[in-house]
Design a protein around this nucleic acid. Sequence first.
DNA 1: ATTTTTTTCGACGTTTTATCGGAAATATTG
DNA 2: CAATATTTCCGATAAAACGTCGAAAAAAAT
Lengths: 237, 237
Amino acid sequence: MPTQSRAAVSLQSALPATDADEWEDLLHRATTRPKRAPDRKQDRSKRTEQQILNAALRVFARDGISRSRIADIAAEAGISTSTLYEYYKSKEDLAYDLPTSHLVTFFEEYRTAVAGRTSARDKLQLYLSMSADFAREHAEWGRLFYLEIWPSVLVSETELRHSVDDFARIVLYLIDEGVRQGEFPAGRNTYETASLLLGAVNQVIITWLLYRRPRNLTKASAEITERVLNMIANEKD
Amino acid sequence: MPTQSRAAVSLQSALPATDADEWEDLLHRATTRPKRAPDRKQDRSKRTEQQILNAALRVFARDGISRSRIADIAAEAGISTSTLYEYYKSKEDLAYDLPTSHLVTFFEEYRTAVAGRTSARDKLQLYLSMSADFAREHAEWGRLFYLEIWPSVLVSETELRHSVDDFARIVLYLIDEGVRQGEFPAGRNTYETASLLLGAVNQVIITWLLYRRPRNLTKASAEITERVLNMIANEKD
DNA sequence: ATTTTTTTCGACGTTTTATCGGAAATATTG
DNA sequence: CAATATTTCCGATAAAACGTCGAAAAAAAT
């Protein structure tokens, strides 16, 4: 039971003893980012909070963050504007907190799905395909995250930044692992390789979110991921 | 004919007679996008317009579009808010018109620089390196364009969209040309290859704009471009 | 010099954001 | 259960940003 022992260890020391530990640690941190919102006492509040998040996602995805109005979000959530301000201190605050929970869900789903895989390449393939699929399945979230928040300068000032960093860090780690295990040739700049992979897949996702091209995102992202991983694996040292 | 690769961009004019013509036509259209702003009579106006654009670029790059205030931009430009509204009907209008002139300048610089090159691969290498260098040299513009406007859903509703389409269309065309001339293996989805190239380079540019990493963008972008082009050229059919 | 056109700006109305004090709902205590 | 305390919600209203308009100033034309 790796999860439990991991949790125990991470309380004690920051430095994992083994590679497997480090990988577990990475996934663990990604799935346990602290929630920014202060805990509410009543159940009613949790419902309200959820209504706000649902409404905000719909409105932001429909109108874009800048054109969305707080009043519209509140109305959509069935509460008054001033109540919304009890939960989020500004529109920006809401927009940049909103994607967190989905992101954590994605990491959790990946963590479960990756359990069987052993090779770094398989793990990478799964990770990138799943990220595209997740954007397709949660297209409203995808629009918000990929088209408005991730590239934004503002993200670097928010808590969400940590999750975004986790996102890239996992790719980076897996490439390193692949090199260590001889699946990928050494002698290449790992950051560069990561940019290549992440950039290519994100480009496909973004194009899909904007134009719904290619028609079949799942197939297209699996294809490009496979292709790039092949290229990387077959590169001359 | 790879009709699929044409799908994402809409070619509007009649088909030129030869390849060389088509290439010239592509560059010509990119450098002659009509200006949206109505022509002003007095020189004073042109100066004012320029002051607005300079001020807006500074303010947008510093605060981000959403946090920027029209009043701040007007003050920075040394004019009153109401005068600004004589030139642009809203903040959004200004933000999405602003990057056009720089983009046209980029296409012009590329057009001049590419004149000597003959192989499609050389042209691609130059194009992508120059795009990174241009972002580095005009970092404020780069922040606005790459981090706020390009990925935005809103861009698809603006005139700027045409220039953005040109940007991708050129990569697409050069890959096609490379395949036709036997520099790149056939049998690959051109659109996919373009995503790969553009995604990788943009990822590097965006990371540099956000974190100033890698330190030397010129070197890094040349390196990753070279690497990806090699990969593509050496791919098995 | 006078008239016409273009450009600028201050004054002001509108929309959106944000705050605050108290009412309503829920939880706690005796 | 009643009284009290806490939490949540909302109407009224302040503050800030957006956007309009008519008239003054500047430039051009006659």
